[in-house]
Design a protein around this nucleic acid. Structure first.
Length: 566
RNA sequence: CGGGAUGUAGCGCAGGUGGUAGCGCACAUGGUUUGGGACCAUGGGGCCGCAGGUUCGAGUCCUGUCAUCCCGACCA
């Protein structure tokens, strides 16, 4: 393609809207533009890469015998009402009405639609297993769209759904998707980790996330260098510590602590560390009020707590409720004398002579000891893993990193098939509920992640597999006839070989062309300059910066071998 | 949804105390240049986010509103 004819609006300066590298580069390299918050258009260069990623996904999905189709994005409410998700999605779902005042939404995810489709099309065990997928636009009215295309409100997702006769079949379908995903992200040259993820209170026997390690990732993951264990922080298990309590138990006392509520204030007041406190949080779990206790410096993990309680909804109780159950204002809750269910973190079991709220506004208890002073505590792992914790598998020190979730595979079990009565007839003619899995990849997010991991001060460094063009030809001086005609010829013959080539035939100075070529990240660059008259061109590799001069006759062979070897 | 910030040319920005809206880049034309974001000359481009208000007069002050970004909360 001739650059003089293309829409590649590169920017010299970084638009104020971007904060992270990939977002800045996508804007600067002219790959995309914002239409609204969390809504983006892909420009020609960006769209080429986008399509290449889609194609990689397609090939690997097809290889595992998944079938591509496309559902509508516009979906009638009934589909979601049957599973209850019309209400569960809440304001995150884009809703609209047709002229007859019927409810519709723009699909945020398609479990219902796929299930209905399979329900009406598949009746016999002979047709199972079956995996269907689509690459399609999704709509979610996120509270906070972020980082450009990383978290947005309109985004393209490859979503796949598997349908199986039984658990063993589901396992196989799930493993097939695991293989496909690994190949997809390998081919995209992403450095990723597969982590165990929480599969929620709603059942489902397994879930893993494909995480691209990055400081800008929104998810926190815990991993073990020695045994390879990796899980996201909602899931990562905290081991029960080994307690060695040889301290003398002091007698409990009530201390007047007016206006001392937060852990920080308490540390100052008592002149001690946050580890000396047990923090008591009051939660509302499906209308039941419960208390949860973690050490003062720890973070409660709501997912773990929710899973333990088996509730559908979990939220912090409001001030009024706290007052009602603890008989004190917020900030003075504690386990002693509470008559509600109390769930304490495993670690709390070993605390001695600690400080906690007295369930009395303005008072705390000091020197509290679990066995002596409290009763009916349930000890469960409910805190979030952190540095200093140990690997639940091999007990070595755990490491913490941030990650971008680019893919998620999930065993749903019968959650949707049961609700929508999606059944098949088995060998004996008996009706059975199908088991389902769902599998997603964010295409735009994958693209941004590739850029996040492959760039330098000059711009993007595309992996060969997803680059918008493989080669760029830069004639130094387009008005020099020798250079112009050599570049033109080279352009034609590379194209004849089926190579994707950009021809910078713009009347720009060399510096501008070089900078643009590096910014947009084309892997191979051929410069036709002074030595054109001797039949020599300059050849540069973006990734390594390696540069040499080669004979024009050898260029095509060199390009071909570099494309393969890149 | 809570906190913070910002809206002035395509992009980046400047415009004390109210008085005819500016700079750099980009763009157009002509010329000189041509191996790392050239130079000279000329030129086009603005509902100063929007709506009210105060004032003889508002980019500037007041009120409201919308949009965008960041932090947090939340999140199949």
């Amino acid at each position: 393609m001739r650059m003089s004819k293309m829409l590649i609006p590169t920017l010299r300066e970084v638009p104020a809207e971007a904060e992270i590298n990939s977002h800045k580069l996508m804007l600067r390299a002219g790959l995309m533009r914002r239409i609204a918050s969390g809504v983006y258009a892909y420009l020609p260069l960006g769209f080429r890469t986008f399509k290449k990623i889609e194609q990689i996904i397609r090939e690997e999905m097809d290889r595992e015998n998944a079938q591509e189709l496309v559902m509508s994005a516009l979906i009638p409410a009934e589909s979601y009402k049957e599973t209850g998700r019309w209400d569960i999605f809440g304001p995150e779902m884009f809703r609209l009405k047709d002229r007859g005042n019927r409810d519709f939404c723009l699909g945020p995810t398609h479990e219902e639609i796929f299930t209905q489709t399979v329900k009406s099309g598949v009746k016999s065990y002979k047709n199972l297993p079956m995996t269907l997928y689509q690459i399609q636009t999704k709509y979610r009215d996120e509270r906070r769209p972020r980082f450009g295309v990383m978290r947005c409100r309109e985004f393209v997702m490859k979503d796949a759904y598997s349908f199986d006769k039984d658990e063993a079949g589901l396992d196989e379908s799930y493993q097939a998707m695991y293989r496909a995903y690994s190949k997809i992200f390998d081919r995209c040259k992403l450095d990723y980790t597969v982590v165990e993820a929480d599969s929620g209170a709603m059942g489902g026997s397994g879930s893993q996330e494909f995480m691209v390690k990055s400081e800008i990732g929104e998810a926190q993951i815990a991993y073990c260098e020695s045994c390879g264990y990796a899980a996201n922080d909602e899931k990562a298990e905290c081991l029960e510590p080994v307690f060695n309590n040889d301290k003398e138990l002091l007698s409990m006392e009530e201390v007047k602590t007016p206006n001392v509520k937060t852990i920080e204030q308490l540390c100052e007041f008592f002149n001690c560390e946050a580890t000396n406190f047990a923090k008591t949080l009051i939660y509302k779990a499906d209308d039941v009020i419960i208390a949860a206790i973690v050490r003062g410096d720890r973070e409660l993990n709501e997912t773990k707590l929710q899973n333990y309680l088996g509730c559908n909804e979990l939220e912090m109780a409001d001030d009024e409720t706290v007052y009602k159950v603890t008989n004190a204002k917020v900030g003075f809750a504690g386990p002693i004398g509470l008559s509600i269910k109390i769930v304490a973190d495993l670690e709390v079991k070993g605390m001695v002579n600690f400080i906690t709220g007295a369930n009395n506004t303005g008072y705390h208890y000091n020197n509290v000891n679990i066995d002596r002073d409290t009763k009916n505590l349930e000890f469960v792992d409910i805190r979030t893993i952190t540095l200093g914790d140990h690997c639940p598998k091999c007990k070595n020190e755990i490491s913490i990193a941030r990650g971008i979730e680019v893919g998620h595979i999930f065993k749903l079990g019968d959650k949707y098939t049961k609700a929508l009565d999606c059944t098949y007839l088995d060998q004996n003619g008996r009706s059975q509920t199908m088991l389902m899995g769902c599998y997603g990849i964010g295409v735009g997010r994958t693209m941004a992640s590739i850029i996040e991991q492959n760039n330098d001060e000059s711009g993007i460094i595309w992996p060969m597999a997803v680059t918008p063009y493989q080669v760029i030809i830069i004639p130094i001086n387009i008005s020099n006839e020798i250079q112009a005609s050599m570049a033109e010829q080279l352009y034609n013959s590379l194209q004849d070989e089926g190579i994707e080539v950009l021809f910078d035939d713009r009347k720009e100075r060399p510096g501008v062309k070089f900078n643009d070529a590096e910014l947009i990240g084309i892997p191979l660059r051929i410069t036709v300059g002074k030595k054109a008259s001797e039949g020599i061109v300059e050849y540069k590799i973006r990734k390594t910066g390696d540069m040499d001069e080669i004979d024009i006759k050898k260029v095509i062979a060199r390009v071909k071998s570099d494309i393969l070897a890149y």
